[in-house]
Write a protein that binds this DNA or RNA. Structure first.
Length: 414
DNA sequence: GTTTTACCTAC
RNA sequence: GUUGUAGGUAAAAC
């Protein structure tokens, strides 16, 4: 079988699974222990795979909270199955990558949300200011195994490999088959499922292309850009019909809508009619909450520690949203973060005398220090006082190496 | 060149 | 007995 013929493929798969640092599956074998196990049992495993006798192990069910509320059910395969699936994915990927649509951006090498957004912005600047947002209803639950297997058999000649994939489908490890059907929601978490979802939805891409639509797709979320509301409704209805009748998938009618481009969210962004990217409100709220969590006073955590925890977060968030038009927002957020940190720092002093000593050390007059220290204001009110600003100015934060959203934003523009 | 860490998005 | 997969970005270390 192609996936295990070269030991290099298996090794690469193992490295990838190990790098992801996932937890152990139901057999309790952690990623790090697999190589030891493989030395002893590997030959048997490969033999089973070659003969088509291999049976997948069960999945571990875990629920994690979704960022937008609700829970997401995950089905975590054992490390062994993750490695096998990963090696299958490594073989299938190059085969399918060649023929996938240019407008499909999720789960693919050299493609990402930014490229999808850039394409969407281009559509908008061409005057397509109405967007048809389509949402699939529990996509993985609805995938028809026979359709998928047929599609795979047109590209994959290896019968043993096809049988193995079918086993994964049937055992509910891959797309949530019988095992998960009685529960609500779909377990995800298999290395192969993103690729398979692209294979299933490639048919949709091809149809949209044939009809000449301007669209972007990221996983099961896709948006079609049109010039008028009327055209939008028409497109929505006919694509909806195509999805239910031809693809045998379900459309979530409640979450699918035709609306003005600046009233919908795509990949965490909103696009204005002038073609500017803006950060979606929900994402700003979520971001501020996570900063709040970090700057909540924790026992025995130093100021430097907080900054070093804050920086990667700020940088990561900035990296994702740096292409947006956010000069003012970034400035406001910077100011808000600095105030949070001032508040955190003066809270650390606890007593008035310690606060006075701290302020004096940072160049505030003794008399002024006492005024603020003895004022009845709470910490958050105090943190905005001029004395506090004098002791911990914007420049001071730069010396502490606090990442600045607005400074980095300026840096990329000029 | 290799490794690690952190962050973001989608499911 | 508590966090999966894929893609991406940055930083650090050797």
């Amino acid at each position: 079988m192609t996936i295990v013929c070269s030991s290099d493929n298996l090794k690469r798969a193992y490295k990838q699974v190990k790098r992801n640092k996932g937890v152990a599956g139901i057999d309790q074998m952690p990623t790090g222990k697999f190589s030891d196990w493989f030395i002893v049992e590997g030959e048997l495993l490969i033999n089973d795979l070659l003969l088509g006798n291999y049976e997948p192990q069960g999945v571990k069910q875990v629920e994690i909270p979704k960022p937008k509320g609700g829970m997401r059910k995950l089905g975590i395969p054992t490390v062994r199955d993750r490695i096998i699936q990963q090696s299958i994915a490594q073989v299938l990927n190059p085969i399918y990558e060649r023929e996938f649509s240019e407008r499909s951006y999720g789960y693919r090498p050299r493609r990402n949300a930014h490229k999808a957004l850039r394409q969407a912005v281009e559509y908008v600047t061409e005057g397509r200011e109405v967007v048809v947002d389509m949402d699939m209803k529990s996509f993985f639950d609805e995938v028809n195994h026979d359709r998928l297997m047929y599609e795979l058999s047109t590209k994959i000649g290896d019968k043993t490999l096809l049988r193995l994939i079918r086993k994964y489908l049937q055992s509910g490890i891959l797309l949530g088959g019988l095992v998960s059907q009685r529960t609500k929601g779909t377990p995800q978490g298999s290395p192969l499922s993103p690729l398979l979802s692209n294979i299933v939805l490639d048919e949709l891409d091809k149809e949209l292309e044939n009809r000449g639509h301007c669209f972007v797709r990221f996983a099961d979320d896709f948006s079609i850009y049109v010039r008028s509301k009327k055209a939008g409704e028409r497109v929505k209805n006919s694509i909806s019909a195509f999805i239910t009748n031809k693809l045998k998938l379900k459309v979530n009618e409640e979450k699918s809508a035709v609306c003005e481009v600046d009233k919908t969210i795509l990949l965490g962004h909103t696009i204005s009619k002038s073609g500017d990217l803006l950060i979606a409100k929900e994402n700003i709220k979520r971001f501020k909450n996570s900063i709040r969590l970090l700057t909540k006073r924790k026992r025995g955590v130093s100021f430097e520690q907080i900054i070093s925890e804050l920086n990667p977060k700020l940088r990561g968030w900035f990296e994702y949203f740096k292409h947006t038009k956010s000069k003012g927002l970034f400035q406001n957020l910077d100011a808000w973060i600095r105030r949070k940190l001032r508040c955190f720092r003066i809270k650390q002093t606890k007593r008035a005398i310690t606060l006075v000593r701290f302020l004096k050390k940072h160049g505030v007059k003794e008399y002024q220090s006492w005024i603020i220290a003895l004022s009845g204001k709470g910490w958050w009110r105090k943190s905005a006082a001029p004395q506090i600003h004098q002791a911990m100015g914007n420049l001071w934060f730069r010396e502490q190496n606090l990442f600045s959203l607005s400074l980095n934003y300026k840096k990329l523009k000029y």
